[in-house]
Design a protein around this nucleic acid. Structure first.
Lengths: 230, 230
DNA sequence: CATTTAATGTGATTAGATTCACTTATACCG
DNA sequence: CGGTATAAGTGAATCTAATCACATTAAATG
């Protein structure tokens, strides 16, 4: 899967910045591999595929590597996004300071109740929902963070898509996806389902702890068949 | 990768509940496949591996399927978690109502400033950080949500691990992982890096839009080589 | 300046997961 | 009550991604 590669690139990128901040000048495939948790060969393959070349002994030059990744990943352009729905999650994201550090600028928030996030520590303007299309066009926004209540999830999703948004980070518990006919158009959806992530952890714990796994085959056993020790 | 399967199981599970709510009684591998976005054969393989059997024509009985997944995934037991760090993200999660719906109970919050989330709409008790170990033992907590500031991330992570926590959902921008020697002990870490997710979307958009991909081979081209159209 | 050593770059290999394609069982229909 | 259609179940084939292993290059050393 080639999505994994993009994810790895983002991770390399972050580590490179940290290494640079520490004063390092070159990095080896092994270093990056360790930090990201993959084999060094994967790192080299990734760079090879991007036509990013290192030096046959001295590894990769961090500064140049960062510049190359800047271009490949579009980090040289400013990256603007909006937050739609400024309730619990959306509001927290409005006040989250980590985005600017990463070169992402939250241009605006939207909420049915635009006074929700006024006054105190909130430097980002919050507009009512009917300003959505206007601001998207004015500011040329491509990416939206969706944090509205579950019941208006798909409705707002469609509005965003119609308004020209090309990428959505969805915090709604509804798993958004493109309809089959639109499957080839360039539209990116990432679903972050926090409850699902938590469940996932419980499930993994349950499965690894409760001996539902056949120690020989690694096969997951049905509860009834699981502990037939007699 | 067998982690993908657990993720699929969680998705089947949620859809099954929705179908049940709609009054359906049976479901086919094709239905679940469509909903989750995988091939029907995958669905059948998954269930087959779990020794969950359907009927050779009538598909799978939803009620029984849910019960089976309940057991496999540990949903029959109550699932408690704590939130460590009740600032922006942590605080939002404290007030998030979606957990209880999914059978997850947030037993407590912890913060250096325990009055952070007092008074208003916050029914979950918030303790100071030095109560952490005590409450974990008292309440027999296995899973923690980590939402502390970046600089105390690894420190708190180690405290949680030492206190007997077995699974962590990490919202800290530091990617947590087990040290290599502990790699086989049952400890689950999920990293949710919101800024990284957003970056990821920008990158994917950039790569798909900016013709950095060779239309013939699908290979990603280095910016300089990308548009050699002369 | 030859030799050793260390790291990249990449074709070949392996492993794993997905899909195919066929077999089997069973509900439904005439 | 036999025939047909439908969907599960599953071994085999395919596809994809990770790993290996080695050739290649360049620095370092004496």
């Amino acid at each position: 899967m080639h999505k994994d590669m993009i994810l790895r690139l983002t991770k390399y990128y972050r580590i490179l910045h940290k290494l640079k901040a520490l004063g390092l000048e070159r990095v080896f495939a092994n270093n990056l591999g360790d930090a990201v948790g993959v084999n060094a060969a994967v790192v080299r393959k990734d760079f090879s595929l991007l036509n990013i070349i290192g030096q046959k002994r001295g590894g990769y030059e961090i500064e140049k590597l960062i510049q190359d990744l800047d271009k490949v990943l579009g980090k040289d352009k400013p990256q603007k996004a909006i937050i739609v729905g400024c309730g619990r999650i959306g509001g927290a994201l409005m006040r989250y300071s980590g985005f600017e550090v990463d070169g992402i600028h939250i241009a605006a928030g939207f909420d049915v109740n635009p006074s929700i996030c006024k006054g105190n520590e909130c430097p980002i303007p919050v507009y009512p929902m009917d300003k959505l299309e206007e601001i998207i066009h004015e500011e040329d926004i491509r990416v939206g963070i969706l944090a509205v209540p579950e019941h208006s999830s798909t409705e707002v999703f469609n509005r965003l898509k119609a308004a020209g948004i090309k990428g959505i980070l969805n915090f709604t518990p509804i798993e958004l996806k493109l309809s089959k006919q639109n499957h080839d158009e360039p539209f990116i959806i990432h679903n972050v389902n926090i409850a699902l992530e938590l469940e996932h952890i419980f499930y993994e714990l349950n499965i690894t702890e409760n001996h539902n796994i056949d120690p020989d085959t690694g096969e997951i056993l049905h509860p009834e068949n699981a502990k037939k020790t007699h």
